[in-house]
Amino acid sequence: MAQNSSTTSPKKKGAVSYNKWGYIFLIPFFVTYIIFNLVPLFSTIYYSFFKYYREGLNWIGPEFIGFDNYVKLFSDSRIFDYGINTLIMWVIGFVPQILVSLLLASWFSDTRFKLKGARFFKTVIYLPNLIMAAAFAMLFYSLFNAKGAITQLVQSWGWVDSNFDFFKPVWSARILVGLMNFLMWFGNTTILLMAGIMGIDVSLYEAAEVDGANSKQRFWQITMPLLKPIFVYVFVTSLIGGIQMFDVPAILTQYKGTPFAGGKFTTMTLIMYLRQTLTSRDYGTSGALSVILFFITAVLSLLVYRVMYSKKSREA
């Protein structure tokens, strides 16, 4: 925005005739966005206020029922159970992810810490992020199922009994999902944190060193406080990603969200629930659930936007 004032203001007359092209070049984006994103968003919101579902071969509705779909969703414990499942599996992946990423980022960005092969390690840790989550989950299923390679190995080493199945106990099923999320995302987080650390003014470290601060003090007194905005960014974007958790638990448990324990499906996530309402053609419930998820992500996005925006204005 700032750059235009220097180029266009001296000869405003000439610029005026060109500027209509700004609108013209925006047409493809906005036409596509309106058709494929805004119209679906509004029809999703619209359906959330209607009784509209398929029973056998017949469609019931659409009949306007106000907020009944929302009331029905919240009077059922499933939305809370699946929300908590999603959150638990996200935390299992996120906590080790942020700790490991911070450690790696501080090593990779420390120039005096002469780490050899840093590029090799960076390449390797980012690799799982580009693997198809569905295929990665399928691979985990084929390795960890009752007859899978890893199950056989840990059984033959005597670590577990001979009829152990990773997908039967709640803890091991959830940990597998968390482990996969950790593996897929810690490389990405490392690179984000690294970019953040490298953006810190080197003279701060030099000054601290002159004042006799050791590496631990430099890390806790300089790096950590200045990384706060990026932590917020990583935390919130990861949470938004966590809410979208679907591919991994869906493929691992064949959309079922098993194991079933204590009267609930323990690896069923919110988006798996959404898929369930979609495949059963319950448009009303599906719409209400979508709107709730939309509001949660919108609030979280606003938070990210504010962190990024306030940082920019501080720089300017």
Partner: peptide, 22 residues
């Protein structure tokens, strides 16, 4: 510009009902 940044994070899953309907 603000609008495009604001919609950046909206997941495609939450509009999939309307999308498939369309």
């Amino acid at each position: 510009f603000t609008f495009i940044l604001a919609v950046m994070m909206i997941p495609s899953q939450v509009t999939v009902l309307g999308f498939v309907d369309l």
